[in-house]
Design a protein around this nucleic acid. Structure first.
Length: 632
RNA sequence: GCCAGCGUAGCUCAGUUGGUAGAGCAGCGCACUCGUAAUGCGCAGGUCAACGGUUCGAGUCCGUUCGCUGGCUCCA
């Protein structure tokens, strides 16, 4: 950090060096792309106020990296305009891990053009053209872009209220931009274009679809290379790929979006369910099950017919219309309403592993993460208004326990507020939003507000987990609902003997078993912890002679609930070990003459390797020490 | 749904400017009876996603449909 002054003295004026030049010099020595002046990010050629506090911003800092990528997007636009004259350019920001730029390309652009564009960018970078800021009067800026037929830029300027428009110029390329930017294009020497995609202008599907080019930029070639390797590694652990390799699940054209679970996948799903049941019993939930198909009247009453019809599947029974449930709540409400309820039952926590079907648009399907048939670990809590906060806190505690303690996930939390197509009284919405917010504040949970993203019947708290490429997926959710109790005329008898309206809380923790499973596969890269592993111990007889002893050991393990298999193939030991390793099985027991005589097993662990010889009793003790969320 | 790319044996992939389909792994059989990450030999396996068109001739070119992947929009 340094103090600079433009004031007279120190020979600035006398020596003919301006404060700006001095600053530039000082910062280039420090390898800075920009500076923070009194905490604010500025270009290197900023004109300093008297006694400004100045810090260099290097390419390695988060701000520097973002700037680098933003500047790279300008370079991309310049290259595309050079190679595809007549192209209209829209917007090009830096994003997490990179940048993009949207174009209406003159002619055709294909993925195979990317190397050509990269080459042009490299050429332009070599020229070290300065990126300079130009502030134009509004009318002049408008004329400038209008002349070139840049309709997207003029539309953007028209939306701005400023008198003066900030632009950045590099050579003959000029872009509407707030900045700041790197001093010259020479800083953009580690840039890679990644993919081509369609994107609607201003994110509205009624608008024209532009061509988006994604890329990334790093301070140097080594860190770019490291990033690309990370991407490749992430692709190797994609759940679709591992699901096939480890024989966990499959998807078929016969049922797009309807996953099939194989025996090994079912072991994991069932473990998740067993654990879920245990934890819910402990936390005072009961469990119900409701039908998959219910008649149309129910969905009319719930509001799904009006708000959710386009995502529902329908069928006909005895010439009457039925719907396949897209959500579990209406069924759950029928259980609630099946008899008179008392406040003494409250908080009434009814869980349901409910399988739902939703007609998702074909383009959004994604492995197990976005499917058309999935099982929610749903629950509906029927409570009094006074119980709202405690119950929300209770669910948040459960989510934290499962995400953080059991699975060591990092997760983010969002509060989604009233959407446009909301049902019901705005005052109720305000109250519900406030209750959720209070619970978040009280539990000191960091969260982001997602304006207008709530469910049609109520606001919600969402829990998001990351997949291996850093994409986030909503898993758990807590939704506060005052609408359904009205619609279904739900009541309970209070202490005063009068009928009251309950409040309803919808919630999930896994979200959907399918999605959570997909994320788990990637989280563990297929090497599931002992308590989830489809096969926990693989028994490897050295030769056929040791099969009898192998069966004896297998029986012993099975009796104690251990999931075990013998590799009975007529193969060499090395091959059996390799295959067990590829299957990511936690333990291998090697059995040969020695073990047979000593009544021991030679233990190999998938990451630690050889653990030496152990008696079966010693081994069972070791296995018992493996982490398990079960406490039976 | 929209944009782009892809679809060849169970899996991973090769297949010249259009001339009639190939490897490795997996599977099956035989031999070997094996000590810590791949034993050898053999056999079998394909309406080249589907349908239509161009052509004497299509895995290859064109069109349509389906599916998958990456995005966009959407996502209770």
């Amino acid at each position: 950090m340094a103090h600079f002054s433009n004031a007279a003295g120190e020979g600035f004026d006398g020596s003919g060096i301006s404060g700006g030049d001095l600053l530039r010099h000082w910062n280039l020595e420090k390898n800075a792309l920009a500076v923070k002046v009194n905490g604010e990010l500025k270009d290197l050629n900023v004109i300093l106020e008297e006694d400004a506090l100045v810090e260099p911003v290097t390419a390695e800092s988060p701000e520097g990296l973002e700037m680098l990528r933003h500047s790279a997007s300008h370079l991309l636009a310049q290259a595309v305009l050079t190679l595809f004259p007549g192209t209209k350019y829209a917007i090009g920001p830096a994003i997490k891990d990179g940048f993009y730029y949207d174009f209406e390309v003159a002619g055709q652009i294909a993925e195979e053009d990317l190397p050509k564009i990269e080459k042009e960018m490299a050429r332009l970078a070599k020229e070290k053209t300065p990126l300079s800021r130009e502030v134009l009067p509004r009318a002049q800026a408008l004329d400038l872009f209008k002349e070139q037929g840049q309709i997207y830029k003029t539309e953007l300027i028209e939306a701005l209220e400023d008198e003066h428009i900030s632009c950045y110029r590099q050579g003959d390329f000029i872009d509407l931009c707030r900045g700041p930017h790197v001093p010259h294009t020479g800083f953009l020497r580690a840039v890679k274009l990644l993919s081509l995609a369609g994107a609607y202008w201003r994110g509205d599907e009624n608008n024209i679809m532009l061509t988006r080019i994604y890329g990334t930029a790093f301070p140097d070639k080594d860190s770019l290379k490291a990033y690309l390797e990370r991407l490749a590694e992430a692709k190797r652990r994609a759940h679709q790929k591992l699901g096939k390799e480890l024989d966990l699940f499959s998807l078929h054209p016969e049922g797009p979006g309807f996953p099939f679970f194989h025996p090994k996948g079912m072991v994991i799903i069932n473990r998740l369910v067993d654990f879920w049941r245990q934890e819910h019993i402990r936390r005072g939930y009961c469990e119900i099950k409701t039908p998959l198909i219910l008649n149309k009247d129910l969905w009319l009453q719930s509001g799904h017919w009006d708000h959710y019809r386009e995502n529902m599947y329908f069928t006909e029974i005895d010439e009457r219309e039925y719907a396949i449930k897209p959500m579990n709540c209406p069924g759950g409400i029928l259980v609630y309403n099946s008899r008179l309820r008392s406040y003494k039952e409250f908080p009434l926590r009814m869980a349901e592993l409910g399988t739902v079907h939703r007609h998702e648009r074909s383009g959004v399907l994604h492995g197990l993460m976005r499917v058309r048939c999935f099982t929610q670990d749903d629950a509906h809590l029927y409570i009094t208004p006074e119980q709202i906060k405690d119950e929300i806190l209770g669910v948040m505690d459960l989510a934290k326990y499962i995400y953080s303690e059991v699975f060591s996930f990092k997760y983010s939390v969002e509060l989604s507020t009233r959407p446009e197509k909301a049902m019901g009284d705005p005052a109720m919405w305000d109250m519900a939003e406030k209750a959720l917010q209070e619970a978040l504040e009280e539990s000191r949970t960091p969260y982001r507000i997602n304006e207008g993203d709530g469910a049609f019947y109520g606001p919600k708290i969402d829990f998001h987990l990351e997949d291996c490429l850093g994409r986030t997926w909503q898993c758990g959710t807590i939704q506060l609902d005052f609408q359904m109790p009205e619609k279904f005329d739900m009541t309970y008898v209070g202490r005063d003997g009068q009928q009251h309206r309950p409040v309803m809380l919808h919630r999930t923790v896994y979200g959907s078993l399918e999605r959570f499973f997909g994320i788990l596969i990637e989280h563990y890269a297929g090497a599931f912890p002992y308590w989830l592993a489809p096969v926990q111990v693989k028994i490897l007889p050295v030769s056929e002679d040791h099969l009898d002893y192998a069966r004896e050991v297998e029986k012993n393990l099975r009796c104690r609930g251990c999931r075990t298999e013998i590799d009975v193939r007529d193969e060499k030991l090395g091959k059996k070990i390799r295959d067990a390793q590829m299957e990511k099985i936690p333990y291998m027991f090697v059995l040969g003459d020695r073990e047979n005589e000593e009544r021991t097993v030679a233990v190999r662990e998938r990451t630690a390797g050889d653990l030496g010889s152990k008696t079966l009793e010693e081994m069972l003790e070791l296995l018992a020490q493996e982490f398990s969320p079960f406490s039976l």
